[in-house]
Simulated scan of single mutants.
Amino acid sequence: MSVLVEFAMFPTDKGESVSPYVTRIIKMIDESGIPYKLTPMGTVFETETMEEALELIKRAYQQLEADCNRVYSVVKFDIRKGKSDRMVQKIKSVESKLKKEVSK
């Protein structure tokens, strides 16, 4: 199974720039060994189970809970049985179709 997750999480009580807080979360994800991609608006990662995905979201929150009084988060899931490596494969699929369109 593949659980693709796109999420953003940050404190709302720490001023205009929250990159030091987001950095804590990204460092934790990086150290977890779970494949991820940082984007300007959030982070995408892929796990094999929903439990792993939810645990990583929980751990992200734990990076902020000690010194942040208000945390905002948006989380999206794309869950598909019988597939893996979808962070890469979904992009390759679209790119291959784009090449076909361009060559027409």
Results as ranks from 00 to 15, higher is better:
Glu6Trp: 03
Glu6Leu: 04
Phe7Gln: 01
Ala8Ser: 13
Met9Glu: 03
Phe10Val: 00
Pro11Asp: 03
Thr12Gly: 02
Thr12Lys: 07
Thr12Arg: 13
Lys14Ser: 12
Lys14Phe: 09
Lys14Ala: 12
Val18Ile: 13
Ser19Glu: 05
Tyr21Arg: 05
Val22Leu: 09
Arg24Lys: 15
Ile26Phe: 02
Ile26Ser: 02
Lys27Ala: 08
Lys27Gly: 06
Met28Phe: 11
Ile29Gly: 05
Ile29Thr: 03
Asp30Thr: 10
Glu31Asp: 05
Ser32Tyr: 08
Ile34Met: 05
Tyr36Gly: 04
Lys37Gly: 09
Lys37Ala: 12
Leu38Val: 09
Leu38Tyr: 01
Thr39Ile: 03
Thr39Val: 06
Pro40Leu: 01
Pro40Arg: 00
Pro40Glu: 01
Met41Ser: 03
Thr43Tyr: 02
Thr43Val: 07
Thr43Gly: 01
Val44Gly: 00
Val44Leu: 09
Glu46Met: 01
Glu48His: 10
Glu48Phe: 07
Thr49Trp: 04
Thr49Asp: 11
Met50Asp: 02
Glu51Asn: 11
Glu51Gly: 12
Glu51Ala: 12
Glu52Val: 10
Glu52His: 07
Glu52Asp: 14
Glu55Phe: 10
Glu55Gly: 09
Ile57Ser: 08
Ile57Cys: 13
Ile57His: 06
Lys58Thr: 13
Arg59Gly: 09
Ala60Phe: 05
Tyr61Asn: 14
Gln62Asp: 15
Leu64His: 10
Ala66Phe: 04
Ala66Trp: 02
Ala66Met: 01
Asn69Ser: 13
Asn69Ile: 04
Arg70Val: 05
Val71Asp: 12
Tyr72Ser: 14
Val75Gln: 06
Lys76Asn: 12
Phe77Leu: 15
Ile79Cys: 14
Ile79Glu: 13
Arg80Thr: 11
Gly82Met: 04
Gly82His: 10
Gly82Val: 11
Ser84Lys: 10
Asp85Lys: 14
Asp85Ser: 14
Asp85Cys: 10
Met87Glu: 10
Met87Ala: 10
Gln89Thr: 04
Gln89Arg: 15
Gln89Ala: 15
Ile91Phe: 06
Ile91Asp: 07
Ile91Gly: 00
Lys92Tyr: 10
Ser93His: 13
Val94Leu: 14
Glu95Cys: 08
Glu95Pro: 05
Glu95Asp: 11
Ser96Leu: 13
Ser96Phe: 06
Lys99Tyr: 08
Lys100Ser: 14
Glu101Trp: 14
Glu101Pro: 00
Val102Glu: 15
